[in-house]
Amino acid sequence: MKYKKAQDVLPQYMIEDLQKYIEGGYLYIPKKEENKKSWGENTSTKDELNKRNKEIAKKHKNGKTIEELADEYYLTGYSIRRIIKKVDL
C-alpha cells in the first residue's frame, strides 16, 4: 500500500473536515466492495502455486514419497499431504 498526502488528492474543505476527527494521524480508506480483488489476482503467484501443487500431486501419483516431495519442495510432510488431498488430477 502506498501512502498519499491528503493535500495532493483531496480538496481543502475535505481535509479540514477530516482534521476534526483525526488530525495528524493515519487513516485507511478501504476499497469499494466491487473494486476488491482476491488474493493473487494482481500477480502470477496463485497460478504458479497451482502449477506447483499439480506437479507435486502428479509426482506422488507416480511413486514419490511424502518425505521425498517435502525435501524437494522445502515443505513439511503435512503441507504435501494437504496439497495431494486438495489437487484433482
Results as ranks from 00 to 15, higher is better:
32 K>Y: 06
66 I>K: 11
63 G>F: 09
50 N>F: 14
74 Y>Q: 13
74 Y>D: 13
66 I>N: 13
43 T>L: 09
20 K>C: 02
59 K>G: 05
75 L>K: 07
57 A>I: 13
12 Q>C: 00
72 E>C: 03
6 A>V: 05
41 E>D: 14
62 N>V: 03
65 T>I: 12
88 D>F: 08
59 K>A: 15
54 K>Y: 10
46 K>L: 08
59 K>V: 05
29 I>H: 07
51 K>V: 08
64 K>P: 05
78 Y>F: 04
30 P>V: 02
58 K>Y: 09
34 E>M: 07
63 G>S: 12
38 S>Y: 10
7 Q>P: 00
42 N>I: 08
46 K>P: 00
52 R>H: 07
19 Q>A: 08
63 G>L: 12
43 T>S: 15
79 S>I: 00
76 T>A: 08
26 Y>I: 12
66 I>T: 15
27 L>T: 04
5 K>M: 01
47 D>A: 11
81 R>E: 09
37 K>C: 05
50 N>D: 14
44 S>Y: 01
44 S>W: 00
58 K>Q: 14
88 D>N: 12
28 Y>L: 13
86 K>P: 02
66 I>V: 15
44 S>L: 04
71 D>M: 11
78 Y>C: 07
74 Y>V: 06
44 S>I: 01
29 I>N: 07
79 S>C: 04
43 T>E: 06
6 A>E: 01
70 A>W: 14
43 T>A: 02
14 M>P: 00
48 E>D: 07
30 P>S: 05
71 D>C: 08
13 Y>L: 01
77 G>N: 15
41 E>I: 04
77 G>L: 07
69 L>G: 08
18 L>S: 01
16 E>Q: 12
14 M>S: 06
27 L>N: 01
88 D>C: 03
31 K>S: 12
